[in-house]
Nucleic acid binder design. Structure first.
Length: 301
DNA sequence: AAACAGGTGCTAA
DNA sequence: TTAGCACCTGTT
């Protein structure tokens, strides 16, 4: 018998925009769904965080409170723990208001990007899940990445509630054959995923240990893994380690930097990265988030 | 229906 | 050191 429990309200110290946060490409397991028992909520998403599936929702695009629902999990997790956990995932400690103000003062382009994605939060994700997800992201579309991750969870993860499964443990992935992983349609990235899993499971790459290293050292540590280049390493540093000074550069960001900050001149990724980190310093990660969401969003419209 | 999608590793200069 | 190329898979 699976018993539903009432949603809890989680309050934040600053603005939250679930749509921008969960659709800006930093996390791959969120789906737009009707909120259980509250079909009136216009913004609601179901995802899996750690071992537990959640639905989060809000009644307007940007609010300071969100609703969180889950299925009854193990009895050891109280409402208070859940709400602390959700606040941590959504990086409640970040002074988003201050960050937006500061960035918006740096020029019309950034002001417009911030306005478009106001309330966006750089998440604080699980190290391994984030690493593996971005290994799969190389030369791949968000849609494909999500579908592959869902198949991997389906096949190798554990039940997480709401019919979802957790992201598979590195030890479980590490003991698979490449051809088995291929069935989840990760394509040529199968060997990279395997390398990541085996280096993490063996401790050859110590994800916990990277926490206290300086950025460049942590970056080099991640890049020991096959399939982890500068872009993937930077995404992991930003979206899992919450190193807000990094500025991951993909084709969209390279385009944005070229067009808006370097007069349209062609730029190499490393040059765009240094330019972003130079201009935005400690807020480079947020700057990247707003720019990316804005570029993608306005390209589609 | 060819081209492209949120890169990376390998090879040749 | 760097430019050029191949690469699974799904969509347009």
């Amino acid at each position: 018998m699976e018993q539903k429990i009432d949603p809890i309200e989680v309050s934040f110290s600053g603005p939250v925009n679930l749509k921008a946060t969960l659709e800006c490409g930093q996390a791959f397991r969120w789906k737009k769904v009707p909120f259980p028992g509250r079909p009136d909520l216009p913004f609601a998403y179901q995802g899996v965080v750690g071992a537990c599936a959640l639905t989060v929702g809000q009644d307007r695009l940007v609010t300071r409170k969100i609703l969180v629902a889950r299925e009854q999990p193990a009895a050891d997790s109280s409402e208070g723990e859940l709400s602390d956990w959700v606040r941590r995932y959504f990086s409640d400690g970040d002074d988003v208001e201050g960050i937006e103000k500061e960035l918006a003062s740096q020029g019309d382009v950034m002001a417009e990007a911030v306005r478009y994605g106001s309330g966006l939060r750089i998440l604080t994700q699980d190290y391994w899940e984030c690493l593996a997800s971005y290994v799969l992201s190389a030369n791949n579309s968000i849609r494909n990445i999500s579908a592959t991750i869902e198949r991997l969870a389906e096949r190798y993860g554990r039940p997480a509630g709401m019919g979802r499964r957790s992201f598979p443990d590195p030890r479980v992935v590490a003991c698979q054959e490449a051809c088995s992983l291929r069935q989840s349609k990760c394509g040529f990235r199968d060997k990279y995923l395997l390398d990541a899993a085996s280096k993490v499971a063996s401790g050859q790459v110590d994800l916990k240990g990277l926490e206290q290293m300086p950025r460049e050292e942590a970056r080099r540590g991640l890049m020991k893994i096959a399939g982890v280049g500068p872009k993937v390493a930077d995404c992991v540093l930003l979206f899992a380690y919450h190193n807000l000074g990094v500025f991951p550069v993909d084709v969209w960001i390279a385009r944005a930097v070229s067009r808006h900050y370097l007069g349209g001149r062609a730029v190499k990724p490393d040059e765009a990265r240094r330019e972003g980190e130079r201009r935005f310093g400690d807020l480079a990660g947020y700057a990247q988030g707003y720019l990316f969401y804005w570029m993608r969003g306005t390209a589609k419209e």
